[in-house]
């Protein structure tokens, strides 16, 4: 028990899809909670009213800046958590809440929603709507290794998490347009198709081998750019895919 890390799920303005995605690890989630992490906070899962001190905060949703409690809670999360992870498109980039202009009963004045990175410093990004269960699982396992592992495991976890930390530094705006700005315009797109497979709303097709984003459909979740092997490709991690997948599999057996 002493070796477990403490994890909390902080719910801002989001649809709970990210939490469902975490839960969709089924047995894997139970193993994580059994062996590696104690859930110390979570609206629907833990009977705790106030944000406690914790190692890792998994934050879902964007922050409504007209909602005083939400603003307080996200600041408190930063104070209480050693590592803040933005889980999902809303926490990272605003996602679908970017389109809000208020007017919804019974709080029509709640009109402005910001990615958490606009209010606090965020350590790790997991873009996507919702990010896949396996992605959240991999980050949980790596976060555990980073905090409790041996030297070698700490090194691996650092290497694995580095691009996700860099995504957090990169900014709080995302769009299918990133594929144009930061990949095609930069002379880096080789037409593999990763982005189209990652898009949750099927906004991306390929025309003559290059992505074509239907911008009306894009919800700004950031999955396409994060998935692109030409957004980041870390030669110190990905080529070790066999060993890493085996290790994650073994950790959850």
């Amino acid at each position: 028990m002493a070796d477990k890390i403490t994890v909390g799920h902080v719910h801002m303005s989001g649809c709970t899809g990210c939490l469902v995605s975490l839960a969709d690890n089924y047995g894997g989630l139970l193993t994580i909670l059994d062996r590696y992490a104690d859930l110390v906070y979570g609206l629907t899962l833990a009977d705790v009213r106030h944000i406690p001190k914790m190692d890792v905060a998994l934050v879902e949703g964007s922050v409504c800046i007209q909602d005083k409690l939400a603003v307080e809670e996200i600041k408190e999360t930063r104070e209480k958590a050693a590592v803040v992870v933005a889980v999902g498109g809303c926490a990272c980039y605003g996602n679908i809440t970017r389109f809000s202009r208020g007017g919804q009963p019974n709080q029509p004045q709640h009109e402005s929603f910001l990615p958490i990175g606009d209010l606090i410093k965020v350590d790790v990004y997991i873009p996507g709507c919702a990010p896949c269960p396996q992605m959240i699982r991999n980050v949980c396992v790596m976060a555990y290794l980073l905090l409790k592992g041996n030297k070698e495991q700490k090194e691996l976890a650092t290497k694995f998490l580095t691009p996700l930390m860099q995504l957090a530094e990169r900014g709080t705006e995302a769009c299918g347009c990133d594929l144009m700005y930061d990949v095609v315009n930069q002379g880096l797109c080789m037409g593999c198709g990763s982005c189209a497979a990652a898009c949750p709303v099927r906004a991306i097709t390929h025309e003559y081998g290059k992505p074509n984003v239907n911008r009306e459909m894009c919800i700004k979740c950031g999955a396409c750019y994060a998935q692109c092997p030409r957004s980041f490709f870390n030669f110190d991690v990905v080529p070790e895919f066999e060993a890493i997948m085996e290790a994650i599999g073994a950790a959850l057996k």
Partner: peptide, 24 residues
């Protein structure tokens, strides 16, 4: 089947499946 870059994409997607649910 794919080119070397597509194999890189596949392996990145297995380790970092942002949007590839239940594929890895």
């Amino acid at each position: 089947v794919g080119t070397p870059c597509q194999m890189q994409a596949v392996r990145k997607g297995q380790l970092y499946p942002f949007g590839w649910r239940d594929v890895d």
